[in-house]
């Protein structure tokens, strides 16, 4: 007999893995892993602020992660190399979040769970949130899919064909910010980028079209969630990191697979 809390964890984890698949593929295609990191790290400050204002943490996370993603997208031009800027934003956000969690009044935070995830205590209400938020992200991405692919291939080509780069950036950044809020419970803010890029990176050598890559990433993500939870159950390891360990193993297997060409 499987414990109900394990079932809940598996359901929540699968939902996150499915939403992560298309977003993670876009992050990999656009080489924006650091961008995912910075957005994820901003979530800690969001949690701390929300708690100190007695608001639901998810609201704080969506607001602060969106602010971070929009700032990086629209306010950083020139001066420094992009990876330097992202490193500055990413680590500054994490440090400010840690300091805020320590000094803001009314913040009582289990830092370990926030940083590394706490999926085994997910509630039915949280699953509803994840399902609703995930459905919105998937619907928006599906509706904008052709534009997202064109902007990934060549922003110039997209602009010339009359597409809106502003719309593309808004959809991508805001979807990522909402995803951070949904995935925090599963893998914690330190490993959110891993949940995005590992299944996508493992799927890349196996796929011959963008949609196929998303589907394979969803399968690999699902397998990682179930495998990680099983590992956590059997070996008493932390659930979030265990999921990423399994995803890493799948990535290594996929990368080592003999190539046809």
């Amino acid at each position: 007999m499987i414990d109900p809390f394990l079932l809940k964890a598996a359901l929540a984890g699968l939902l996150v893995a499915w939403v992560a698949a298309p977003l993670g593929c876009l992050v990999v295609w656009r080489r924006m892993a650091y961008f995912g990191d910075a957005t994820g790290h901003a979530a800690l400050l969001g949690v701390a602020l929300a708690m100190s204002l007695s608001m639901p943490p998810i609201v704080g996370v969506v607001v602060v992660a969106s602010a971070m993603a929009l700032t990086i997208t629209f306010a950083t031009r020139g001066g420094f190399a992009a990876d330097t800027m992202l490193g500055v934003f990413s680590h500054a956000a994490l440090a400010i979040g840690l300091v805020a969690a320590a000094v803001l009044p009314g913040v009582r935070l289990n830092l370990m769970n926030t940083l590394l995830g706490d999926i085994l205590t997910v509630s039915s209400q949280e699953i509803m949130w994840i399902a609703a938020g995930g459905a919105v992200i998937l619907a928006v991405i599906a509706a904008a899919w052709r534009g997202l692919l064109n902007a990934t291939l060549s922003p110039e080509l997209m602009a010339a064909e009359g597409g809106s780069l502003l719309r593309d950036k808004l959809i991508f950044t805001l979807s990522l910010a909402v995803f951070v809020a949904l995935a925090m419970k599963l893998v914690g803010i330190l490993l959110i980028t891993a949940m995005l890029i590992l299944p996508a990176a493992a799927a890349a050598p196996l796929a011959r079209s963008p949609e196929r890559m998303v589907a394979i990433a969803a399968l690999i993500g699902s397998a990682s969630v179930l495998g990680g939870l099983w590992l956590s159950w059997e070996a008493d390891t932390p659930a979030g990191p265990s999921i990423i360990v399994v995803a890493s193993l799948v990535f290594v297997l996929s990368a080592l697979r003999p190539h046809k060409n």
Partner: peptide, 13 residues
């Protein structure tokens, strides 16, 4: 390019 993209699909975009 990291995105798998057959030529026909590219034209379709």
């Amino acid at each position: 390019q990291l995105i798998p993209m057959p030529v026909d699909r590219f034209i379709a975009l």
